[in-house]
């Protein structure tokens, strides 16, 4: 397929931590991906972009093994996620973590306990040591002072930062961010952008960001994959993407930066639906 010719250009981005190979996935009657392939390079920030409703979150769930593809393979550190045994999958999951759109903090625990939770579950560390680690992680996201608050007392941006502290508690190899910038004010957005960038550099982990906030993500991403129409329509560095010759890519990048203009792909659907409703 001509769509991922650009992948070869990034051979300098070292080996991949996640490889999506020829994946087909459908939910019910609806095909979400068809023969999609791309890879997430190790130690870099990769952004998956695309219009709403094309299953970007589904992609993260596939990588996390919560969903299984109909066809094709997903490799995490060279091992096939869909074919893993339950135990192997759980082992693999301790090496990745995911920042959910809502933060997904446990509502019945304080911020401190939330961050301590994966440590208490997966390590045999003493409470004293856990306290140290948790304070360090909270310091990294600037919420050390909020450690005794309950999740319901946090603002949206703070909840996401607390969730980020929890996501890095076990020092994962890969962090997946699901729409980290959605619904944030410019200040929290700026904070998050800076955090993602610095965490990636300091901790040497790989980041995978799913978003449609083009400007924010292009400023920090090393590698960009644009998904639409059931597959990858373009991938490369942010600079390469700006000059990409696909009309679709250009429309997506510029369309969104101009404002909430409906994307071409969506408009077609809309018309079809209108027509079918008239019959």
């Amino acid at each position: 397929m001509s769509q991922f010719v650009n992948v070869d250009v990034e051979s300098d981005l070292s080996q991949a931590i996640v490889e999506i190979k020829d994946v087909t996935f459908s939910r019910g009657e609806r095909t979400i991906y068809k023969n999609m392939s791309f890879s997430v390079p190790k130690g870099k920030i990769t952004a998956i972009m695309g219009p709403s409703g094309i299953g970007k979150t589904t992609m993260l769930r596939l990588i996390g093994g919560q969903l299984k593809p109909d066809n094709g393979d997903i490799l995490f550190e060279g091992q096939s996620i869909p074919r893993m045994s339950r135990k192997a999958l759980y082992d693999a999951r301790t090496k990745m973590s995911m920042l959910f759109q809502s933060g997904a903090l446990f509502t019945d625990m304080s911020v401190f306990d939330n961050v301590a939770f994966p440590l208490r579950e997966h390590t045999q560390l003493s409470e004293d040591l856990i306290r140290l680690v948790v304070l360090m992680k909270l310091q990294a996201v600037g919420l050390r002072g909020a450690k005794d608050l309950m999740p319901s007392e946090l603002s949206g941006g703070m909840a996401r930062r607390a969730a980020l502290a929890r996501a890095i508690a076990l020092d994962p190899e890969l962090i997946m961010y699901d729409e980290p910038f959605a619904g944030q004010d410019p200040i929290s957005m700026g904070v998050l952008v800076k955090l993602i960038k610095s965490l990636n550099e300091v901790l040497g982990l790989s980041s995978l960001i799913v978003t449609h906030d083009v400007n924010e993500v292009l400023s920090i991403a090393d590698h960009v994959v644009i998904i639409a129409e059931q597959g990858v329509i373009g991938s490369g560095t942010p600079e390469q993407m700006q000059q990409h010759d696909s009309a679709l890519v250009q429309q997506f990048l510029k369309g969104l930066s101009d404002g909430p203009v409906p994307f071409h792909y969506q408009a077609q659907n809309y018309q079809e639906e209108l027509l079918s409703g008239g019959q």
Binding site: R61, G64, Q66, Y90, D91, R93, T94, M96, S97, M98, F100, Q101, S102, A104, L105, F106, T107, F117, P118, E121, H122
Partner: peptide, 12 residues
């Protein structure tokens, strides 16, 4: 609120 998914992704 994705807490269940979140647990799964934490390998719990």
């Amino acid at each position: 609120t994705e807490q269940l998914s979140s647990l799964e992704m934490m390998a719990i």
